[in-house]
Design a protein around this nucleic acid. Structure first.
Lengths: 200, 200, 200, 200
DNA sequence: CATGAATGAGTGTTCATTCAT
DNA sequence: TATGAATGAACACTCATTCAT
């Protein structure tokens, strides 16, 4: 009599262990054996839920994306314009452990993404459609007159996205210097600049 | 007399091959045998010039840093204030093949750097002191009245550095969307914003 | 249920193959692949039962010691004094294939033991406590008046141990000259000398 | 103009370096590079004087044997019977640094000797003809009435040789216990026993 | 469903050896 | 004669993967 297991639930449980390993040991230190050890299961069990190691890595990233997008929906619920934009930007920075793990996760795949156009595009897309989301919220804020319309919304969104990824990277690589406090301050400053006219 | 080889010159020749492999295959695909193949020499020859693989990787990154800083000196020669700042920012973006390779090189080490505090600090520092350089040029531009002094110079530098790394990353991961043309336009826009008062 | 293997039993089976390789090819010729070939398994299987090659070599020597001491207990069961001493001496000479293999095994480690104080002491002790055993049996035989008490028991034991190792070595290196027959005769003669007064 | 080098003299100089390396690092740690470093010459120079590594090792052992036999001649000059025998026995024990090195040298080859009958016999014979020499001196001492003639000279010689090698081995493996002092005492005792009747 | 024994390709590294200079 | 650059095979070891149980 086979044990009954919720396949999807088990998969997610396993993938969360993969996250932890990736964030802790980098992709270089993420071996099947280490993952298995982290899950508490034997190494062979991973073969039941994933076709191979690449499938594990891709699935882990995809699940992370799914979770991130779901959290957006939740956090942006009822917000509009600048308030929503602000929430979205802050949500995509490593300001707590959960989101720092997510950021590390992204970073960890970049090396693989560089190596292969195919991997880069087809398999693990760069991530959730953050740029589009930023763009539409910027446009909304502009329509509501909350921020200047001098720049095209896509360009404002592009700058925000660039800052998000740049700052996130620096926070990971130089945690002593780019503390969470400093990170928050810098991004708050940036958001404030968007709503305040600059005096020469 | 034995066959005479300029040790330093040969080392640099080998390290440039390492760059190409790292940029093409990622750190994951960079094996001693692949490197050797790229150099055109046998695998064993690397043992003559480096103690082990880690030495190869660190040396490759260090040489890149040395070259980058040297190029700064050259390009900034005779420039001051905003002109110098502009040159420095543009020089640190993947706007041609040489600098794209450099950017890929940086990216490739991030996984290792995140995984190990030791690696991050002691071995391959994050890179050349770009932030400091940006900071002093921003301050200079502020003193010359070329840009607003509303923000502290370090914060302006921090934003520029964030944008440089964020945009560079996007250019690498989504080259179709973030083309060199677009990248240049966005950064030019950013520089322009610094010198022009914003109207609400 | 997974394939069930008695871990200890399999380890011993593997270590016996290591013995054969060491005795046949010397420590110099004992590579992982050769051992694997001797076991009939693949090379990788050794990784399941041993941490590394040194662990294999040490374990092989330790198992041999364990077996030797166990055989002593068995053979000396019920014997006392000179009879026991005689049995112990004879048991430690390469008079049959099994004990020849054991002797070769000892010999093979001497090079490593000499090179490193650490190895010599901490890892593979010189071997089972033969000297102590000889000493106590000599003392027993002296007490029983079976042999002269002119020399201290430890000195008699020391001489016997020296002869055992010296003769064993000669038997291994010059098997044509130092045949098992001759070896047995010489040691019997030695034992006889201990019980018989010498006439000038 | 080629440098003029005394080929034989240079060979011996190199081989003495090989001795030192063998005694210090064991045969396992004796690599061409280490030898070269010990000689102070480059690694390639060994190729001029020896055909390959095995030739180096064999030559080193042979030179040692030559030196040993030469020393015998010197030390035994003018001695006869028991006095000569005593001198020969003492000369073959590791009682000073020079002879300890010789003993280590012998030991170091045993592993190789086990592996190959061919090596054992044809290439590096077990050593200088110590047994024959002992035999003839024992016979001489017996003829002179210095020691008992009860045992055949060859058997007495065999026992002495066995003790020499056994004690030498123990001195190398357990230098704390089998000190030079103790070694000398034990062998003196043995020689004394040969000249003194045993009382029951 | 889950195990872990077993595999074999691939890794970084060491090393004796060759050879142009 | 002496060098050391270069080679390539062999080494111990790691790891993703397969599969009988």
């Amino acid at each position: 009599m086979p044990k009954v297991v919720d396949h999807l639930e088990r998969r997610e449980e396993l993938l969360e262990a993969v996250w932890r390993v990736l964030a802790r040991d980098g992709i270089h230190g993420t071996t099947i054996r280490v993952i298995a050890n982290e899950t508490g299961w034997s190494a062979g069990v991973l073969a039941h839920y994933f076709t191979d190691k690449e499938d594990i890595l891709i699935s882990a990233l995809r699940l992370s994306h799914t979770r991130i997008v779901a959290r957006w929906e939740e956090k942006l619920e009822g917000l509009e314009g600048m308030a929503a934009l602000r929430e979205l930007v802050l949500d995509n920075l490593p300001l707590d452990d959960e989101r720092e793990l997510e950021t590390r996760l992204q970073l960890v795949y970049w090396d693989r993404a560089v190596a292969s156009q195919e991997v880069r595009e087809a398999k693990w897309r760069h991530g959730p459609p953050l740029l589009d989301r930023l763009d539409s919220l910027v446009a909304e804020a502009q329509e509501r007159g909350e921020i200047s319309s001098r720049d095209k919304s896509i360009e404002v969104a592009e700058r925000l996205w660039g800052l998000i990824d740049g700052y996130s990277l620096h926070a990971l690589l130089e945690p002593q210097r780019m503390t969470r406090t400093r990170l928050r301050k810098l991004i708050e400053q940036e958001l404030e600049r968007m709503t305040t006219p600059m005096e020469v």
